[in-house]
């Protein structure tokens, strides 16, 4: 099927609510992080959202690492 339309893809194929719920922004030791839930209280860091360049060098929150957050 070919659909030619100027409508945004999200409007035609709505995304499941679960996909949105998987990712969230949390404050970890005062650093805003975009994380994805993996297990109970374990999250995987996806993006650091801070403006402080030093936070990007902070070893425990490098993207890809797992953090425990309650």
């Amino acid at each position: 099927m070919i659909m030619y339309t100027m409508m945004p893809e999200e409007l035609i194929f709505p995304i499941n609510q679960e996909v949105y719920e998987k990712q969230q922004v949390i404050q970890y030791n005062g650093i805003p992080l975009l994380v994805a839930k993996t297990e109970n209280y374990e999250y995987e860091v996806i993006r650091v959202l801070s403006t402080d360049p030093n936070h990007y060098l902070h070893e425990p929150i490098q993207p890809g690492t797992k953090i425990i957050h309650i």
């Binding site: 403006t51 402080d52 360049p53 030093n54 990007y56 060098l57 070893e59 490098q62 993207p63 890809g64």
Partner: peptide, 20 residues
Amino acid sequence: QQLGQTNVPQLSQDSKIHCL
């Protein structure tokens, strides 16, 4: 996997310039 490297350089703690 995420950064393509194992080690990232360390800077001093006080940064007076922030990056957006």
